[in-house]
Amino acid sequence: MKGLKLTDILVTIVISIVFGIVYKLWGPLYYAVKPIGLHVDQLIYGMWFIAATVAFLIIRKPGVALIAETAAASAEFITGSEFGIEVLLYGIVQGLFAEIIFAIFRYKKFNIGVVMLAAAASAAGSLIMDLYKGYIDDLVFWNLLLFIGARLIGSIIIAGAFAYYLVKSLEATGVTNLVRPASHEDYDALN
């Protein structure tokens, strides 16, 4: 039962590479939105957490969220991200925080609430990194609140709700049956 098989890892990493390319393309978009000011850019930050939640929803096994986010960050880094080496460390922390949420629910809950929570946890992880890297605590108070609020809302919408509905549509194609472990309903169907 424990441990990931080659199939699980390969599928996770291929999904992550797809999102890694999205992450890479998201960088210029983020910097293009940033000069608008008032942290509008933070609303789209959540896209960088999506690999963890999508991969977990597809494969539904322990460790997948962490591997997916790390792999997506690696793919972003290898393709020459504007953020450089920091994406790797951010990726690991964000993946870990999402993983912790899924672990709290013992990897048995796959509803939209849990996914949103995981997305928010990833955002919290990235904020901790920003505390060290971006001196965000040296922003004026109202501005800091706006910054945190925008990032949380953005991540819950993108990496939470959007990821959930994306996987819902993927389920309709039947492809998720290839990689998911058998559930209770599957066993019940046999009786």
């Binding site: 098989k5 080659l6 199939t7 890892i9 390969l10 599928v11 990493i13 291929v14 999904i15 797809v18 597809i58 994306l166 993927l170 194609t173 492809v175 998720t176 290839l178 990689v179």
Partner: peptide
């Protein structure tokens, strides 16, 4: 794109 990638990854594995 995602579903085909998953299928392909599964076949490779």
């Amino acid at each position: 794109l995602l579903s085909q990638s998953i299928r392909r990854a599964h076949r490779i594995a």
